[in-house]
Every structure is written in C-alpha cells, then in structure tokens.
Write a protein that binds this DNA or RNA. Structure first.
Lengths: 227, 227, 227, 227
DNA sequence: GATGAATGAGCTTTCATTCAT
DNA sequence: CATGAATGAAAGCTCATTCAT
C-alpha cells in the first residue's frame, strides 16, 4: 500500500536471494536513504549518512548496493511502477472528461507526495548526471504520451485544435512535474510555503483541461464564468 | 543588449575597481564558467576547470570570486536583471491579449536560450543548496506576480474565472521554467531532442492563454477551431 | 607512569569506542605527532607529515582527529593531567621547606622533559592562536595558584613579606615555564646548549626559595653564604 | 624618541639610498607591520595585510623588504639597539644595589611595552624558525651576561653565594622576558588581564634582588619584613 | 617607484570504496 | 553477513612572490 518496493526490495543486485536478516538490512538502508534524500537532498546525502541513519555499518551498504546511484535506480523503478499502476487503475470511462483529468492529477499529486523522496532524488540526479536525465525522460514519457494521445483524440473528434500535441504534452507534463516539485519538495513560492491538496490538484486539472479543450471546465461554466 | 553584466563586471569581490587587465580576466573567467556550466553542469564544474578553460592560473579565480557560488550569484543577478528589463520593455497595450502573452513567452524563451548556462546552473544549484533555492524563488517571483496580476484583472473584468490566481500563476510559471529547462538544457523528451523556437513559444503561449481565458486563442477561432 | 594518555586514547573524536586496530592507529598517530612537534615544531608539522611518520594513509588522520588542533588539545589534556597528578603526589610535609620547593621544581623539570613535545607545541600554539593562549593560561594556572598560596602562607606566618603574591607567583611561574622551554626545547642560551638536570632544578628552586623567603636556602647558609 | 628605527629605516636592504617618497613608504610599511604584529601576531600577519594597512600596493612591499623575516630582522635590530642603549644609560653607581636592579627592570619593562610588537614578533618567530631562535638568543644574551656578571661580582665580594651564575642568569632573564610577554602581549594570567607598571617592575626587581642577594630588598627590611 | 594581477606550490579536508577481521 | 578502519584521489582555498604596465 505504501509503496511498490515490496516487489523488488528483497532481491539483491545480482539476483541472489537474501536471508531474512539481509532483507531487513536492505530495507533499513532503503528507508534511511529515502528519509535522507527527502530531508537533505540526494547529492547532499553521503553513504555514511545512510548507514548511520539505518543503524548499520558503513561497509554493509555495499553488500546490497554497488553505489548510491543504484539506490536511486531502485527507488526510481518503484516510483515509476507505482505511478504507472495507479494511472492504469484510473477510470477513463467517466462521463465527464474533466473528472478523468482531475483524477489523473490527483493520482499524480498524491504519488509525488507519497514519494517525495524519490521525486526529489530523481529531479536532482537528472541535473547532475546525464544517465539519470535519460532515465527521468523515460520515466515521465508514459505520462507525456498519455496526454498527447488525449490531445490527438480531441483533435480527431473536432472538439479542439492543437497543432503540436507533443509539445503541448511536454509543456503540460513539465507543469505537472515541476509544480509538484516546487510545492512538495522545494518549499513553494517566495510568498507561500505550502498548498492544500485540493487546490493543487484543481489548479493542475484546470490548466490541463483548459489547455486541451480550449474552454472552461464544467464546474465554472455553470456558474456563468468565462462565457 | 546581450546582458546586464556590464553594470557589475568591472567590480571585484571587495568593491574595488579593477584595472583593464582585471576586467578582461574577470570576463574571461565568467565566460569560461558559463561555457562549462552549460556543457557539463554547475555541480560538475570545478574551479580548476574554469581557470583552465579561461587560460588562467587556478589562483586567479580567487582574485575575482570568493568561490563558485559567487560566480553563480553574479550570473543569477545578471540573468534576473535582463529578464526583468526585457519584460518591462514589453508592449502591454497591444490590442490582442494573446499577442501580449505570446510576446512574453517569446521573451522568456529567448532569454532562457541566451542564458541557458545561467538557467542550468540556477536550476541545479537550487536543488543542491537551500540558499540558492531561496534565490531562485526570488528570481522567478516577479514573473509569477505578473501572471497572477493578469489573471486577477481578467477575473475583475468578468472575462474569466479563476478561484486561485496565485496557484494558477505558480503552475503556469513552473510550466514555462521547466519547459525551457527541458528543451534548452536537458535535451528534450525521450523521443525528441529539440524544438523550433516558434513551436516552443506558441505552445507556452497557448497554455497560458487558454488557462487564463478559458477559451481558444484568437488565431484558431478564426479557423473554426474548438467551437 | 609515562603518561595519562591511557585514559583517553581509546576514544575517537565522536565518543564511540575503538577497535583494537583503531586504538593502535590512534596511538601511532599521536606518537608520530609528538615526535614531529618536538623535532620540527607544531606549526611546521603538516598532517601529511604525521601520517607519513605513523605509516598511515593521509585520510586515516581524520578517522581519529578533526584537525591538528584536536591532537594538541588531546596532548595538552594529558600533559596537564600528568603534571597535576605528579604535583599532587608531592610530599608537602617535609620538614625543610626548601626540599618541598626543590621537589616541585624537580617534578616540573622532569615533566617538561618527558613531555617536551607537548610543551613545545603548547607554547607555539599559544602564540599563534588565542584559543590556545587561553588554554595555556588555564593549564599553568594551578601552578600559579599553588605558588601564590605558598607566598601568602609565609606572609601570614610572618616569615617573609610579599605585597603582591599573585604577581610574584606569575613571575616565578613564568621563570619556571620559560626556563624549561629554553633549555629543554629551544636549545639553551647563546653560549651553551644544555644544562644538567641537577643544576637546572637547583637553579629554579633557588630562585623560588629566595624570592619567597627572602633569604638564602639552607644548604648555603650552613656554608656561610650570604649572611 | 619613540624608537631607534630612525637610524636604519631610511636605508633599503641593498644599501642604496631612498628617495623621500621611498623613505615615507618604507616607514609606512614598518609602522603597519608593527601595528599588525601586535594586533594579530607575527605568523597571522600576511604581507597583503601589511600593505593594505599601510595603504600601499602589495608589490611595494618587495621594493623595501625581501620578505616578512626581513621586516622582523629590522625590527629586532632596532629593538636590541634600543634596549642596549637604555641599559647603557643606566646609572650603575647608585648607592643602593636594589635601586640599580629596579632601574634595570624598569627599563626592561618600559622597553618591552614600547616595543610590544617587536617582542611579540620575536617571541613568535623564535618558536617557528630556528634562525630566529638563534637571533633571539643573541639578542637576549647581553642581558644574561650582565646579570651573570652581577652575580659573580656579589660572589667575589662575599655578599652572596651562587654556584651557577650562568644558569641563574638564564633563569632570571627567562623570568623577565616571559613575564613581560605574558603581561604585555599575551593578556596576563587566567584570573587577571593586566598589571600596573609599578607592580610589574617591583615584582621583577624583587625576584632579581632576592635571588642574587639571598635577602630581602631594603625597602621591606626597614618595615621589619622577613627578619 | 608604484601598482595589483598572475602564478602555482602547498596544505587541508572529504568521501566513495575496499577489505581484513 | 556485519563491521568499521584504511585508503588516496579530488577538490577547495591560501598566500608568498613575481612581473608587466
């Protein structure tokens, strides 16, 4: 429920099975790493910090991971798996498209909140290391493709016009990713440090809906909004 | 025109005036730093890299800067000054609001392109160092305020409805900043590495306009778009 | 007997207990530091000198000490503990006051000889660093107080007169400290490089006794000295 | 009057005569060095500190001195010349030997006070650099010889007994030097930071007189002191 | 003479990774 | 498996000294 780590966290890097003790140690290290990535950032976290936080010896880290990158890779995998899973679970058949978009934004926001450590670490690593930049591009690509597909469907249905669906999807995805980073990790904007979930989700949903449909979202139309 | 560096680049760390030779060296170091921040990132750039690239001795760096942070601070200042200046020059009285928004996006995009080194460095540093995160929040805050003001004006004029102008401004600003980072620095999305200026600018403008006005932008309406 | 280091040498910087191997390394580093402080002075000794002399890698130094100052602090502590202990062991009830004073001088001289590295380092550091000047003042303060107490006792007993016991104690203490430094570390006076223990001790004792009692010490009186 | 620097300060290292401008610069540098040696110590004073304090360019230092050592050497020379001169001026024919000793201590104390920068620098340098240790030994040697001569004279006159005049002179000289250092430069003892001139001088004189004569100094005898 | 930028050797400290116990 | 000491390559930064202007 809390994460998708269960699938993989009991496996060492080389595929060998771990003893019960090993499983516990590995989990302790991953948990410590998450805590620290979130608290002090990925780059600022040393291997020694992780083992200290996990109450393990420094050398034990290398029993389970080749290096810090591997920890992050593991986390990124779990993170992506979870987002994918939750996006797949979405009910795309809801009558009102805005509700679908809103659900998607809610999933994105709550996943990012639940995995803020991973989000922080991936964002950071993507800026330090081209390999992780590539990984991050892959991770977010599914979401982009989904959005682009939605835009193309609208176009085909004559419901809206969008000459560059991929660029638009990239822009909207960038908004979602960085907006979550800003409010869930970086500490908000200069004049405000946090945002209620409800507002965050609606704001993202509104931008997505309006950008895709080029009209106001249903809730507001009824109130005699932009029209 | 290219930058606001002229104002400050003839001043060393302690406020004393530099000789002509000093001005040249300082500029060479800044140029080398820009090049390297862009090419290999801020965190991956060592002081020795900068001096080597600038064709200067290691120690010379410290004649002009106390450390790498100071270089970035200088760049950030210049960057912000330039963006501010260019946004101030914008003609806000153009008849068509979309044109104003488009101009703004064009300024943002071209500024980010011209200062991609600074953008890369600031983004990176903001993720490694809380002090720079704060600085980055300040730098981008003007743009957020401007967008929020636009949204509030539309609301007051009854042209659109937007219950959370600040959150919306943050989302749109995040989109602009990260979209520029992704395409100008990080190398695009998984399936594409670059975007023509025209498309990038229009995409951002479209998202801004539609989100703020909750309707299609003028160009498309005429073509019988979303309606 | 040789030192009070035993109490503390099995503790690393952070208070954790060391393994046997660690105890050995720490001791090796301290021994190397002592040797070098004595041979080439505190300020002239680099961390790399210490580790090389100890046959350890440079980085190993930092497993045990935060910096060179900490090494000295450790030594100073041990030095002070030893002098205190030896001064406490003195038999203050000997019938002849001169013998008590002579014993005290003997303890001081031999402690300084045994810990000439520490003495040299503390003296040097006290001149480079106000923090160590303060520490040095504290270290020597017990001895000053002891001398001043002796002077006051004589005054009260009507055996001598000394209007400024604290100033006198400072002068006598300065004599003892610097005289030891000069002959045990600096290399004596311009025309002579060393002094037999016996003469050094008697000279100090004589100055102390005469200054406090304002009369010749017993041994000489019998020989028909100053009277 | 303030110093003996006048004799030499208008001569550059190589014997060439300086222009009036040069004389002023050299003096400014020496004055700045004195100030800083006193304020922050010899070792902690950088060449750049000196030139900044003197309001001169960094490079100008090397017009007048080969390095910092040479500055100190110059100062030491002046210092020694002054002490020698003042000790020579002493009236050794005063009826009361205590008065002679007291005058000598007064000269020593006031010279050290007037030249505390030099004293601080020489003491420090003597602990960092064997060359200066040697120099310092030479500087203080005259004083030692004078004291030893006094002791020998007393011995010959049968007025006191002192089997080791040179060791005694070293002890008394060490007392005088370090006592002055402690109170004029280092900042006193742990419980007190300064001493009135009168008390400092009398304390030194008392230790000298009593140690040499093995009896109370005249002033106290009259008050029915030690007898 | 005066200036201050340029130089680079030298030192400190950090930390990922290895490996003997 | 666990442990934590050992290692040494990398940086960062300082500052005496030189030298072109």
């Amino acid at each position: 429920m809390t994460s998708g780590q269960a699938d993989t966290s009991d496996l060492p890097a080389d595929g060998t099975l771990l003893t019960a003790r090993g499983v516990r140690s590995r989990a302790a290290l991953l948990a410590a790493a998450r805590l620290l990535f979130q608290r002090q950032g990925y780059a600022n976290t040393k291997i020694a910090d992780i083992t200290r936080e996990a109450g393990r010896a420094l050398g034990s880290f290398y029993t389970y991971f080749a290096n810090k990158e591997e920890v992050l890779e593991q986390m990124a995998e779990d993170f992506k798996a979870e987002i994918d899973a939750r996006l797949t679970e979405l009910d795309l058949t809801r009558a009102e498209p805005y509700d679908v978009i809103r659900d998607m934004c809610a999933v994105h926001w709550s996943s990012c909140r639940a995995h803020s450590a991973e989000l922080a670490a991936i964002f950071q690593a993507s800026m330090l290391d081209e390999r992780f930049a590539q990984r991050w591009r892959e991770i977010r690509f599914d979401a982009r493709k989904k959005i682009a597909a939605g835009i193309r469907a609208l176009d085909r249905a004559g419901l809206a016009q969008n000459p560059e669906p991929d660029a638009m999807a990239s822009a909207l995805g960038s908004m979602m990713d960085y907006f979550c980073y800003v409010w869930l990790i970086e500490g908000g904007e200069a004049d405000r440090v946090s945002l209620p979930d409800e507002i965050a989700i609606e704001t993202m949903a509104r931008v997505l809906y309006r950008s895709m449909f080029a009209m106001a979202e249903p809730g507001l139309e009824r109130e005699g909004g932009a029209e």
